[in-house]
Design a protein around this nucleic acid. Structure first.
Lengths: 343, 343
DNA sequence: CCCGTCATTCAAAGCGCTTTGAAAACTGAG
DNA sequence: CTCAGTTTTCAAAGCGCTTTGAATGACGGG
C-alpha cells in the first residue's frame, strides 16, 4: 500500500492525503479523519526512503562500532548506552544505525555514512586524547555529539561526559583519609581520554597528600575481568604491595576481587577497592548495600542525554555549543576500610 | 556531489556513470576508469535513500531492542552478538538498524520497520516459548532469522542456536559423575526458550541417575549478578543445601561465587559450579586455566553466522529453511570437584 | 448578481538514483 | 562502400514521497 493507492481509494489527490497525515492545517478536519481512518484500516506506512528523499532528512542517527582487529573487545557499556539513546530516539521518531569499522577506516566510515545521506547525525563514542575524528566531523559539518571529551582538541563541540577527574580525585582522597598510602590505579587504555582524566584526579589527590606516585602501581589496558585479575595479582606480589586499589570498571574490579580471594586477602580489610560503576543493568553494584565502594554514574542516562542533545543539534545547527558534565556519586560499600597496620 | 553533477563534469550521461560505478559490463573499460577516477577525486557517494528507492532494497538489516518497561535489563550478550553480526553485514554492504520497542509494541515495530521499507530483513533475538513474533514475521513474508528457537512454533523458519539441552545434559552428568546428588539450577527467565531447553537437559540427566528434581533447587529470573548472588545465598541456607550449582550465565555465576565467598565456602571444593559461558569479550573465562567449569559457545560467532544466514535468505527467499545447531564445548576449570562428604 | 476572500483541493515538479528501450558509433565481412 | 552485428552511450521513465503554485468552490459584502 503506497500513497498513490491510498489516495485513489479515497478519491483524493496525493497532496491532500500526504498533508492530512502529516498534520498540515490546510486540510478539512472531516477529510483528515477520513484519511486517517483509511490509513489505519489499510495499514499504510509511508516509505521511509521516499520520504527521506523528498525531505532531505533520513531520520536516522548513526553510531560507529570500532570493532577493531587489534582490540577485539566490545565495550560492555555499549548495550546500556545504546538502550538509553534508543529510547530517546524512538520518542522523537528517529531510528538508529550502526556501522562497523575497523580502526583504520573509522574516519572514512563517518564521512561515508553522512555523505551518502544515510544519517542526519552521529554519535562519537570512546574518544581518545587528541581525538582526530572530532575535527573531521566538525569540518564535514555533520551534527554530532561526543560521549566523553578529548583533551587537546581545541575546536568547540557538543559533549556529555562524567566528571572523571573529580570522581577519581574524590575516591582517592577518600582512601587517603582512611589512612592508605600505597594506592594503586588499574585504569583503562592509556590513550582513552577518560583514563587520562581519571589518572589526573588520582595524581592530584596523591600530590595533595604528599604521596609520591609509583609507576609500578599504575596500570592501564582494556578493562576486562581477566585484566583486573592479572594486574591485581601482579601487584600483590610486589615487595611492598598496595593497600588500596582504584579500578576503572566494575568488570575489572571483579577480577581484582578474584585475585584477592585467591591470595587469601579480605576485600575491605586487607585491601580496599574502589571501582567506577557505570550502573549497568546486568551488573548492579549490589541490591541495597553496595558491594564495592564506587564512583557511580549511569551510562544509560548518559545515552539518553546524548541522544537528546544530538537531536537538539540537528534541529538547531546554529545554536551555540552545548556541553554537559555529569557528576558521579561516591557510594560507600563494603570494599573499603581503614588501611591495615603493617608496621 | 550527486550523480547529475558528476556526469556533467565528465560529459557523460547519468546512465553511463551509474553503470560504470556499479560494474555493469556494457561500458567501455577506458570510460569506466575515467568515471571511477572522477568519483574518487570528487568524493562522490551515491545517496543511499535514492538508491534504495530506485532498487527497492534498503541494504539495511533491522534489530529490535526490546527495552521493556518491566525488564529494564539490557542483555549482556547484546554487544558481542551485534559486533559479530555487524562484521558480516559490513562485508556484504549492509548496514544495521536498531529500533527500540517496549514489550507491548514489538510486533507492531517489526511490521512497521518492514512495511515502510526501512529494512530488507530482521533478526529476532531472545525468542520465548511459543514465540508469537515468528508467526507474525512469517505471515508478513519478511526475511528473518532467529537467534535461538521457539518450542511450540510449528511453522518452519531459519534459526541459529546453541544446543542448550545437550550442553546442560552433559554438564549435569559431569556433576553427577563427580558424585553430586543435590544439584541446583539457576536459570534464565522461565518463558525464554533457551531456559526451558536447559532445564530439559538438566532434568533428563537427573532422571537418568534416578535423582528427584527439587523445586527448591530450581530458580529462574533475569540473569544479573545480583540474582545469582541472591539465589545462591538463599539456597545455601536451606536445611539440605546443594553441593553443586548450574548457572545459566557467567554474570550470574559471578554472583554465585560472591555468595559462596561470603558463606566461607570454597568454590570447587565445598560447592561446585558450572556456568554457561557466552565467551564475551570483556568477560573471558580466565586466561589459560578456565575459572569456571563451563559450557562454552561464542555468541559473537553466533552473530556472524546469523548475519550470514539472513543475507543468504534475503538473496534467495525461496530456498528451503536453514537451521544451524552449535554445540557448546564443555571446558573444565577449577570450579568443580568431587562432591564433599556430608555423612 | 458580481467580486474579493478564504478554505480546500489538486496537478505537477523534484528529491537522486536505476533501468528500459532506443540511438549512435564502431566493426568487419561481402 | 554497404550493411548486419556488436559495442557503447543516451534520454526518459519510474521508485514513493513532499511541496510549490495554481485552481476550485463557498461565502458574504456591496
Amino acid at each position: 500500500m503506497n500513497l498513490k493507492q491510498l489516495s485513489e481509494i479515497l478519491g483524493l489527490s496525493q497532496t491532500t492525503v500526504s498533508r492530512a497525515l502529516n498534520g498540515y492545517p490546510e486540510v478539512n478536519e472531516a477529510t483528515r479523519e477520513r484519511v486517517q481512518a483509511a490509513a489505519t484500516k489499510h495499514g499504510y506506512r509511508p516509505n521511509s526512503r521516499a520520504k527521506g528523499l523528498a525531505t532531505g532528512r533520513s531520520m536516522v542517527i548513526g553510531h560507529v562500532i570500532p570493532s577493531s582487529s587489534q582490540h577485539e573487545m566490545v565495550n560492555p557499556i555499549f548495550g546500556d548506552f545504546v538502550a538509553g539513546a534508543a529510547r530517546t530516539y524512538g520518542a522523537h521518531g528517529y531510528d538508529m544505525m550502526f556501522t562497523n569499522a575497523d580502526d583504520t577506516s573509522i574516519e572514512r566510515t563517518y564521512r561515508d555514512l553522512f555523505q551518502r545521506g544515510a544519517v542526519d547525525g552521529v554519535v562519537l563514542q570512546g574518544p581518545k586524547v587528541n581525538e582526530h575524528r572530532i575535527e573531521v566531523l566538525t569540518r564535514m559539518a555533520v551534527p554530532f555529539i561526543v560521549h566523553g571529551r578529548s583533551t587537546g582538541i581545541e575546536v568547540p563541540y557538543d559533549w556529555v561526559d562524567v566528571n572523571n577527574k573529580s570522581s577519581f580525585l574524590r575516591a582517592t582522597r577518600f582512601l587517603i583519609d582512611l589512612g592508605h598510602k600505597r594506592i594503586a590505579l588499574i585504569n583503562g587504555l592509556e590513550d582513552m581520554d577518560f583514563a587520562q582524566r581519571r589518572r589526573e584526579g588520582y595524581l592530584q589527590a596523591l600530590q595533595e597528600a604528599n604521596l609520591t606516585p609509583e609507576p609500578a602501581l599504575m596500570r592501564s589496558a582494556e578493562m576486562t575481568e581477566v585484566y583486573g585479575h592479572h594486574e591485581a595479582r601482579d601487584m600483590l606480589q610486589l615487595d611492598n604491595p598496595p593497600t588500596a586499589i582504584l579500578v576503572s570498571s566494575m568488570i575489572s574490579a571483579i577480577g581484582v576481587r578474584r585475585a584477592l580471594n585467591e591470595a587469601g586477602l579480605k576485600l575491605g580489610r586487607d585491601v580496599s577497592v574502589i571501582a567506577h560503576d557505570d550502573d549497568l543493568s546486568y551488573l548492579k553494584n549490589g541490591q541495597d548495600v553496595p558491594i564495592f565502594t564506587a564512583t557511580r554514574s549511569s551510562v544509560r542516562q548518559a545515552g539518553e542525554i546524548a541522544a537528546e542533545m544530538l537531536i537538539d543539534r540537528i534541529k538547531s545547527p546554529e545554536d551555540p555549543v552545548k556541553t554537559r558534565l555529569l557528576e558521579a556519586e561516591l557510594v560507600v560499600g563494603g570494599s573499603t576500610g581503614p588501611a591495615p597496620d603493617r608496621f
